[in-house]
């Protein structure tokens, strides 16, 4: 999932300082699961913004709604009547959600309430960790299912480097060395032969620096 975290409330309050009516939109997808943008957080943010305004002695009218996923046009469209009523929309979706809302409602201010941080998963209740760098050219079949692109500070493909110290990365003693993990995993699988393979340079053109990416599935196009 895409993992996001809340922006400081006062920062969001700053974005909407000139508005009197706002719509706070939660997302029932990834940001719900990472407890940053579901209905609970949307309610919390709306209440917080109202409280800040109250303390200034000005009123803020808020409406709160949550849609199944902010990255689908139909769901985005489903709140159009509510969007019409307000001066601005505050999105608790990831960066995608904010943009989908902003594109769909061309004349509306759509403001982010979250910082989108990484693609990752829940390692334990309340703790999420990055796993994928969205590089567009997956090599996990070669590395025992552990991604050196995102988990190695240098993203090196033929590791470990000399900075691997007791299984940890030299730049942060709390971060495990990705290549050490790969070694252990391959060893457990009895496939250490793979670590001896030389990996030539990846096709980085598929990475985000190659420009806006899109994907098309012909048979699904309507």
């Amino acid at each position: 999932m895409i993992v996001a975290e809340p922006k400081p409330i006062k920062e969001v309050a700053g974005y909407i300082k000139d508005c009197t009516k706002i719509l706070v939109v939660g997302c029932g997808g990834c940001t719900s699961v990472c407890m940053a943008g579901g209905e609970t957080e949307a309610e919390m943010l709306a209440a917080s913004l109202r409280i800040l305004r109250k303390m200034e002695g000005r009123e803020l009218v808020t409406a709160v709604t949550t849609i199944t996923r902010q990255c689908e046009p139909e769901f985005v469209e489903s709140i159009s009547s509510k969007v019409k009523e307000v001066d601005a929309v505050v999105s608790l979706g990831c960066g995608v959600g904010v943009q989908f809302l902003a594109e769909h409602y061309r004349d509306k201010w759509v403001l982010p309430a979250l910082n989108t941080v990484f693609a990752g998963g829940t390692v334990q209740a309340g703790i999420w960790e990055e796993r994928c760098g969205l590089c567009g050219d997956c090599i996990l079949h070669l590395t025992g299912g552990i991604c050196p692109v995102i988990r190695c500070a240098k993203s090196i493909l033929n590791g470990p480097c000399g900075g691997s110290q007791n299984g940890k990365c030299e730049i942060n003693p709390d971060t495990p060395c990705a290549w050490h993990l790969i070694y252990e995993k391959l060893s457990a699988m009895n496939r250490l032969d793979l670590i001896l393979q030389f990996h030539p340079a990846k096709d980085w053109s598929k990475e985000r620096s190659g420009g806006l990416r899109n994907r098309k599935r012909e048979d699904a196009v309507l």
């Binding site: 609970t40 309610e43 919390m44 209440a47 917080s48 109202r50 409280i51 109250k54």
Partner: peptide
């Protein structure tokens, strides 16, 4: 108890 209920009570 959930955070929303507490915060709204303050509100």
């Amino acid at each position: 108890i959930d955070p929303v209920v507490i915060l709204k009570t303050f509100e």
